[in-house]
Write a protein that binds this DNA or RNA. Sequence first.
DNA 1: TCCTTATCGATGCAATTGCATCTATATGAA
DNA 2: TTCATATAGATGCAATTGCATCGATAAGGA
Lengths: 151, 151
Amino acid sequence: MTKKSPAAEAVKAWGRLMRVSRQLVEKTEDALKAGGLPPLAWYDVLHELAEAGEGGLRPFELVDRVLLAQYNVSRLLTRLDVDGLVEKLPVSDDGRGQTVRITPAGRETRRRIWAVYGASIAELMGDKLSAAELEMLAGLLGRLRDPPIGD
Amino acid sequence: MTKKSPAAEAVKAWGRLMRVSRQLVEKTEDALKAGGLPPLAWYDVLHELAEAGEGGLRPFELVDRVLLAQYNVSRLLTRLDVDGLVEKLPVSDDGRGQTVRITPAGRETRRRIWAVYGASIAELMGDKLSAAELEMLAGLLGRLRDPPIGD
DNA sequence: TCCTTATCGATGCAATTGCATCTATATGAA
DNA sequence: TTCATATAGATGCAATTGCATCGATAAGGA
């Protein structure tokens, strides 16, 4: 494995990607704060749990999905539990683990976050590029993903 | 101003952008850590200061360029100063301010970070997309930037 | 069964970040 | 000049994060 120097095009795209992603996150977090809502990470977790339905998810499954470190998930779940947005249930066939399920209050909070988050996406992405361009962007980004995604 | 619901394409592109940017940062930070090197933020600042040359930069100029909060720049500069990578000079025509200049040791550190950072960019972006695709990606991202950049 | 190793989730502690505010200097109007 | 306001940069304190590790249970081989 040889250490390579990156192509100029790669450096340019990298720089744009870093800057844009940080700007978008920052603006969205600001909008959430302005609305007295919790940060994006809470949404991610509530979203995954909502998708998972009544069966809930094990914390380690959440770790895979949301791209947060294990200890961050552990602590975030503690906060969500304290706030009554999720509930932790013992799981029968694995004495180490638990299952985490979203509560009605959690669904409601998720909905309220989405009102702001979704508007932010619409404003920051939807309004800037056409549907075809967004598809193209998603396609290119998909190939940078790990694992890469064709579609 | 009406709250809008985002288009499906926008949501998909958003999701990819968030995931990919976090993955790329994480992998790059890991590579830097593995090499016993300081984090990306250090590179950003050292890079800007290297570009600025002997004249250096005022901290507030750095704040604009690197997309870090003012207090983070202040503290990062303190660390860089302690490590001898930059030097803080009083500035004659503004008693509140200072000028920050990169030192030879700072240039050397920047070079060593780049050896890893650049290789990471080459591997994670350059190897995944063609030059034309990278240009296309940069173009699309440029339009999401604030302010938008055509080229 | 017993022992070693792996996995799940939590946590102590140090470092970093965010927020609010502070000090000091500069600017500009009266 | 004088005072009010704005700007540059630093910092106290609380919250969050990262790192290392822990305790508990599982899994698998001898």
